[in-house]
Design a protein around this nucleic acid. Structure first.
Lengths: 114, 114
DNA sequence: GTCATCTTGTTACTTTTCGTAACTTAATAT
DNA sequence: ATATTAAGTTACGAAAAGTAACAAGATGAC
C-alpha cells in the first residue's frame, strides 16, 4: 500500500486515457471537428456513453462543445490545444498496434469456444 | 451504427491500453523485471486486479511470468519484446501529462464538496 | 508437533461503470 | 395533429472494479 514513486500527473493522465472509449473518441476528433452523431456513427459506442465521455473531455479541457441552434439542433465537438497535444500519443499507439497486434481471423461463424 | 473506418488493430490495441491499470503496470515493468508484490506496492491496485491484469498481459504476449520455487514462492514478471515496444507509448503519455495536466491542490482535508 | 509467517494468488461480496433501449425536447414539414 | 430529426437523458440489467478474508506450501519459533 505504498505507491509513492508514481508521478501524479502521469497517474492522472493515464487515468484519463485508460477510460473506455476516450482514446478512440480523441482519435476521431483528431480528424477535425465533428458533430455528436458523426462520432457516434464512427464508433461502436452508444449515445449514453458518448455523451458521458464528451462531458468528461470537456470538463478536462480536452474538447470544446459548440451548439448551433438550428432545427434539429447541431452540436459540434472539437479538440482544444490540450486535446491536439494528444496526437503523438495516439500516433504511437497506432504504430505499436500496427507492428504488434495480430487479428484473430473472424471467418468462422460465431460458434467457437464450445 | 456504422463504424467501418476504424482500423481493427488500432481498436484492439487501444482496447488493451484503455483497460484500467494496464498502462501503469507496463510503466512499472519498463523499469525492469519485478515480482508481484513489488508491482503491488508501487501502485494503488489490489492483488485481485493485479493478478487479473497480469494474466491479461501474459495472454496477450506482453508480459512474461517466471516462478522461482523458493519459500515463500517468488514470481517475477517482465516485458516481452511486444511489451518493451510500448515504451514510446508510455513516454508520449508521460510527456503529455507533464505538459498539460495540472494537479488540483490536495492541501485541504477531505471535506470539500459539502 | 503446532503455531505464526510470508508470497502469490483466489473467493465472496459490494459498489461502480457499461450496454441497451425507451423516452424527452424543440423546431419544422406534412 | 402527427411525424421527423439531433442530441441527449432515464431506467435497468450485466459486467467490471474495489475490498477483505481466506488458501497453499515451505519455513522458523516455541
Amino acid at each position: 500500500m505504498k505507491h509513492s514513486e508514481l508521478c501524479p500527473r502521469f497517474e492522472k493522465g493515464m487515468g484519463l486515457l485508460s477510460k473506455r472509449w476516450t482514446g478512440l473518441i480523441i482519435n476521431q476528433l483528431l480528424l477535425g471537428p465533428q458533430r455528436f452523431c458523426e462520432i457516434e456513427s464512427s464508433l461502436p459506442i452508444s449515445g449514453r456513453l458518448l455523451s458521458e465521455r464528451l462531458k468528461d473531455l470537456e470538463r478536462e479541457g480536452i474538447a470544446n462543445r459548440v451548439v448551433f441552434p438550428e432545427t434539429p439542433v447541431r452540436v459540434e465537438y472539437s479538440l482544444t490545444q490540450k486535446g491536439q497535444a494528444l496526437q503523438p500519443v495516439i500516433e504511437s499507439i497506432q504504430e505499436w498496434s500496427h507492428d504488434w497486434i495480430e487479428l484473430e481471423d473472424e471467418t468462422q461463424s460465431h460458434t467457437e469456444s464450445l
